[in-house]
Computed example of a mutant assay.
Amino acid sequence: MPAETTEIISYQQPDTADDYRRWDDSASWLLGYAFLPLALGLDLDLADGTTSRLLDLGCGPGEVTRWLAGRCTARITAVDSSAAMIDLARAEAPHPRIDYRHSDDGLLPFLADGSMDAAMACFLFTCVDEESTIRELIAEVARVVRPGGRFTILVPNPDHAFGAEFEGFRRGDAGAAYEAGELMPVHVRRVDDSWTTILNRYWTRETYRTALAEGGFAGPVRELAPVLADAVGVADAELFGDRAWAQERTAAPFLLITAVR
């Protein structure tokens, strides 16, 4: 792996938000984002006229939000605590059915109780420093999601946080042991083949399951941990590319946790 820079990044900074878009996120698209419609139960028939209301909490620069808007009829409220990210999303990922909103604390006073049919949060909670804040955010999502609505959390798989090599990234260091809430290094490759190392929080399955249950998602919790074979017929074929995807054949880099309100 080439020489790296190491930093505790702040997504509030425009330079960081811009650099985020240059990370090699091929694995995220192939084995993470592609499974969101399935986990959320979104209707992908654009011709049937059905319109649902979807919350994207922690939308970042809006690339995934716009991708979903192009594949379903949902009206999407996309929220991020970084004004720099929201500025990027509005400028570069606009869509007539997406309403981008900035929220300093991640709370949603502009949304009424039960006004969303479903919600998602992609790679949000590894950027949250306190477990109490995770619970507060999930409780706020529960407030705005209608009874019976789904909430999907897409997170790095907690089982592979100790140096496993995936395409484009490595979480943690070999032989290390991380406790819930502990800072851990994440080594990320950019599309120009340079590398950077950022620091994220390590959270366990139990962290998420407890926060969901206590936050108001009392329904069943389902987990989806896709490996390469699962992506056939789900992800866009071009995402497979000419990469080896060696580790991804047997180890799932990501976990989709879906709870029902």
Rank of each mutant, 00 (worst) to 15 (best):
Y11V: 04
Q12T: 14
Q13E: 14
Q13H: 08
D15R: 11
D18L: 15
D18Q: 14
D19H: 11
Y20A: 11
R21E: 14
R22T: 11
W23V: 14
D24P: 02
D25Y: 12
S26M: 02
A27H: 01
S28I: 12
S28D: 15
W29I: 04
L31Q: 04
Y33T: 08
F35M: 00
L38E: 11
G41I: 01
D45Y: 01
L46K: 11
S52A: 06
R53A: 06
L57M: 09
L57D: 06
C59F: 08
C59T: 15
C59R: 03
G60H: 04
G62N: 11
R66K: 09
W67M: 03
L68D: 01
L68R: 00
A69K: 04
G70I: 00
R71Q: 05
C72L: 00
T73L: 11
I76D: 07
T77N: 09
A78G: 10
S81E: 10
S82W: 05
M85G: 05
L88S: 07
A89W: 04
E92P: 00
E92M: 11
E92W: 10
A93H: 14
P94G: 07
R97H: 13
I98F: 09
Y100D: 08
R101A: 02
D104V: 14
D104L: 14
L107A: 03
F110H: 13
L111H: 00
A112G: 11
M120V: 05
M120C: 02
A121M: 04
C127T: 13
C127H: 15
D129R: 12
S132N: 13
T133W: 01
I134V: 13
R135Q: 15
R135I: 08
E136D: 12
L137E: 02
